[in-house]
Computed example of a mutant assay.
Amino acid sequence: MSRRLRRLPVLLLPLVLGTTLVACGSDSGSDGDDSSSSDALHGITITGDVGEAPKVKWDGKLDVSKTETTVVTEGDGDKVAEGDQVSANIWIGNGATQKQAYSTYDKGGKPESIPASAELNPVFKDAILGQTIGSRVAVTATAADAFGESGNPQMGIGNKDTVLMIVDLMSVTTVLDGPDGKEQKAPSWAPGLVTDADKVTGLDFSGTPKPNGKLRSAALIEGSGDKVKKGQNITVNYLGQVYDGKKPFDESYSGEPASFAIGVGQVVPGWDKTLVGATVGSRMILAIPPADGYGKKGNSQAGIKGTDTLYFVVDILAAS
């Protein structure tokens, strides 16, 4: 999702969405149990069960010049395919200092939600796409290949360091191609949708009454899936436009769907308040007053004033 809608930055965004990095080869293998030490791991030993924080025994400073991927434990679940939404625990170590740099297990084992798509950082891609759920996959790489020329100072990883990434694939959710459910009558307060084939390209405010300052939401298509719960990671396509605006200030239909946790403050309050309880497959229309959007300051980067009411169409494609 665009940072225009986020309240907080995403720590792993440079890792997961580093589309400008050069693709690297991989060397995959499996020993079928819960420990591994191989040539691709340069003497590093990884022990522990999938779903629990790994124990890592380093064999001195990690010195690598290319990216290598090793299946430490091979799971027996579904194979991850393009377009899936993967729930994964991630552990990252600095190969120069042999210290942990980041771990989702430090956050109570709450996995990251990762879209399995061509947008994945090439270093990360082989650890996700084509692997089976229940697997533990390790990647050794240079910091420059993993994070870009600057490394990742936020994690204490310099651009000349090396990294060890361990990915535990916990579950997978199939992402819908579009809304799936029963069409509903649009409410009188809602703008019309401008579409190109199956993509929403804008909102038409002709004849739409002025906003009344209230937070509003309605399903244009009532999804046939489960209800979205607070704290779940949801995957959506969306488009946002201010009332009577001539063009959208943000949208995802022309690119990849967005994924984020809902109901926990990662997005504007109006989304948290209206999308929790909606069903997967729904196409929602939202009217969000400033108090539930960006407040009196607005968002100058997006051209949103503090008095603007935001209108969104949101397609809920998955929840996990």
Rank of each mutant, 00 (worst) to 15 (best):
S206I: 00
G207M: 13
G207V: 12
G207T: 13
G207S: 14
P209I: 13
K210G: 15
P211I: 08
P211N: 06
N212S: 15
G213T: 01
K214M: 12
K214G: 12
K214N: 14
L215H: 07
R216K: 15
R216Y: 12
S217V: 10
S217F: 06
A219Q: 10
L220Y: 05
L220F: 12
L220W: 05
I221K: 06
I221W: 00
E222P: 02
G223M: 02
G223K: 01
G223F: 00
D226Y: 00
K227V: 11
K227R: 14
K227W: 01
V228D: 02
V228T: 09
K229S: 14
K229A: 15
K230Q: 14
K230M: 13
K230D: 10
K230T: 15
K230V: 11
G231M: 07
G231V: 05
Q232R: 11
I234D: 04
T235Q: 06
T235K: 01
T235Y: 03
V236K: 07
V236N: 07
V236G: 07
Y238G: 04
Y238H: 08
Y238K: 02
L239D: 02
G240F: 01
Q241P: 08
V242Y: 05
V242P: 04
D244Y: 01
D244A: 14
G245V: 05
G245A: 12
G245M: 07
K246C: 01
K246F: 05
K247Q: 15
K247M: 13
K247R: 15
K247P: 03
K247I: 05
F249Y: 15
F249Q: 05
F249K: 03
D250K: 00
D250R: 01
D250Y: 01
E251F: 09
E251N: 09
E251G: 11
Y253R: 08
Y253T: 10
S254H: 15
S254N: 15
E256K: 13
E256W: 09
E256F: 13
S259Q: 08
F260Q: 07
F260N: 10
F260D: 09
I262S: 05
I262N: 09
V264E: 07
Q266G: 06
Q266S: 10
V267G: 03
P269K: 13
P269I: 10
G270S: 11
G270C: 08
D272C: 05
K273L: 11
K273G: 02
T274M: 06
T274C: 06
L275F: 02
L275G: 06
V276Q: 09
G277Y: 06
G277I: 10
